[in-house]
Computed example of a mutant assay.
Amino acid sequence: MLGSLGLQSFDNSAVQDFVVVLDAGHGGHDSGKYYNGIKESEIALAITLKVGAILEKQPGVKVIYTRKTDKFVNLYERGAIANRADADLFVSIHCNAHNSQAYGAETFVLGLHANKQNLEVAKKENEVIFLEDNYEENYAGYDPNSPESFIGLTLMQEEYLDQSIMLASLIQNNFVNQLGRKDRSVKQAGFIVLHQSYMPSVLIETGFITNKKEGAYLSSNKGKTEMAKSISDAILSYKKSILLATQDSKNPQITEKEIETAIATTEENIYEGVTFKVQLAASSRALELQSYNFKGLRELSMSKEGNLYKYYYGETSDYNKIQLMKTYAQEKGYDSCYIVAFKDGKKQKLSSIINSN
């Protein structure tokens, strides 16, 4: 069952590290965005090293860096580093830029560009491949300027999308609630560096170096330290949340009390006006909403769509909570259950809700 989550199963008889690969964007002859003496590659590296320093102090966490100095690393090699390490997370850290005074932080997961703006951000980050030797061979004819090139990028990451969105949401939540940064939300776009890794992966745009105030903040030691703490706190919250789903299958099932404890200790990620539920099953006959009919689950509801009755577990506007409830339902035997979203009483496409938050 855990394989269907895209999560590794841990053998509790042997302690295994939670492996996080930290990727400082750009480097070397690729400075990334550059404005008034501010280099994206330098800020990204400084924040990345600070995140790593915090995580390395945590027992059971192993940190691997794609670069620790000002050097150039090919995009495909960044993902390969994470894959060779069999990492649990891949986190790529960047800065943004614009020809206006735009500002704010945003975090991306891999996906088809939801709009033209997301496509443009991805294209700018992906164009670094032209600085690499033999890029035609390494990326099999990929063209950063072609929308068609993005279509295949999501396939490898499909089974990790829920986990990637969960981490991205935790990061954005910290940026907004801890630091008061403008929330540019969690978005999906076709970043090659995310496509190359086979685990939950996010790309963080920490802010705009082209904004006078935000550029100064990101350049300051205070700004770098605060951003690093928010990112590392989110990673540790994510780690805590998925521990329930990474127990060895030989161990007893997760209990409802453990789920309640995890929910109580996990940071909220509220979507105002949205209700999330876990869809358990659909049937042509009506069942009583009693726990004995649903493998001990409570908080049940039902709706009728056409000739089918659809059965749901949980009801919350907290996306992190519903992720945990989905894990619990899968542990109970509902392997194919999934999260659905409702707004104004109507079912919505989950990815649209996440993108439009």
Results as ranks from 00 to 15, higher is better:
residue 156 M to L: 15
residue 145 N to Y: 13
residue 156 M to R: 11
residue 217 Y to P: 09
residue 133 D to Y: 13
residue 171 I to F: 00
residue 138 N to A: 15
residue 151 I to A: 07
residue 205 E to W: 03
residue 128 V to N: 00
residue 105 A to H: 15
residue 216 A to H: 02
residue 171 I to V: 05
residue 109 V to T: 11
residue 114 A to C: 02
residue 104 G to F: 14
residue 110 L to P: 02
residue 145 N to I: 09
residue 207 G to K: 02
residue 190 G to C: 02
residue 207 G to F: 05
residue 146 S to E: 03
residue 108 F to L: 14
residue 179 L to G: 06
residue 130 F to K: 11
residue 202 V to S: 11
residue 153 L to E: 08
residue 151 I to V: 13
residue 168 A to G: 01
residue 198 Y to N: 04
residue 168 A to N: 07
residue 120 E to G: 05
residue 163 Q to I: 10
residue 194 L to M: 06
residue 213 K to H: 08
residue 149 S to D: 07
residue 180 G to F: 12
residue 210 T to S: 12
residue 171 I to P: 00
residue 209 I to E: 03
residue 107 T to I: 14
residue 215 G to S: 09
residue 173 N to C: 04
residue 109 V to S: 05
residue 204 I to L: 06
residue 184 R to G: 04
residue 109 V to N: 06
residue 102 A to D: 15
residue 144 P to C: 04
residue 122 A to Q: 01
residue 214 E to F: 05
residue 159 E to W: 02
residue 193 V to S: 01
residue 180 G to N: 08
residue 165 I to W: 04
residue 132 E to S: 04
residue 200 P to H: 09
residue 123 K to I: 08
residue 219 S to Q: 08
residue 133 D to K: 15
residue 127 E to W: 14
residue 107 T to M: 13
residue 132 E to C: 02
residue 103 Y to C: 15
residue 132 E to V: 08
residue 116 K to N: 11
residue 182 K to N: 05
residue 174 N to K: 12
residue 152 G to R: 01
residue 215 G to Y: 04
residue 102 A to N: 12
residue 128 V to L: 10
residue 153 L to M: 11
residue 109 V to C: 13
residue 119 L to T: 05
residue 151 I to Y: 05
residue 200 P to S: 09
residue 177 N to G: 11
residue 182 K to W: 04
residue 168 A to K: 10
residue 148 E to F: 09
residue 137 E to C: 13
residue 187 K to W: 03
residue 123 K to E: 12
residue 205 E to P: 04
residue 165 I to F: 03
residue 168 A to V: 01
residue 164 S to V: 10
residue 160 Y to H: 07
residue 193 V to M: 01
residue 120 E to I: 11
residue 160 Y to V: 02
residue 183 D to V: 13
residue 164 S to M: 03
residue 121 V to Q: 07
residue 117 Q to Y: 12
residue 140 A to S: 15
residue 115 N to E: 09
residue 185 S to K: 14
residue 187 K to D: 09
residue 205 E to C: 04
residue 101 Q to C: 13
residue 124 K to I: 12
residue 192 I to P: 13
residue 113 H to V: 00
residue 156 M to F: 12
residue 115 N to I: 07
residue 212 K to D: 05
residue 106 E to N: 12
residue 137 E to D: 15
residue 198 Y to P: 02
residue 145 N to E: 13
residue 146 S to P: 12
residue 121 V to A: 06
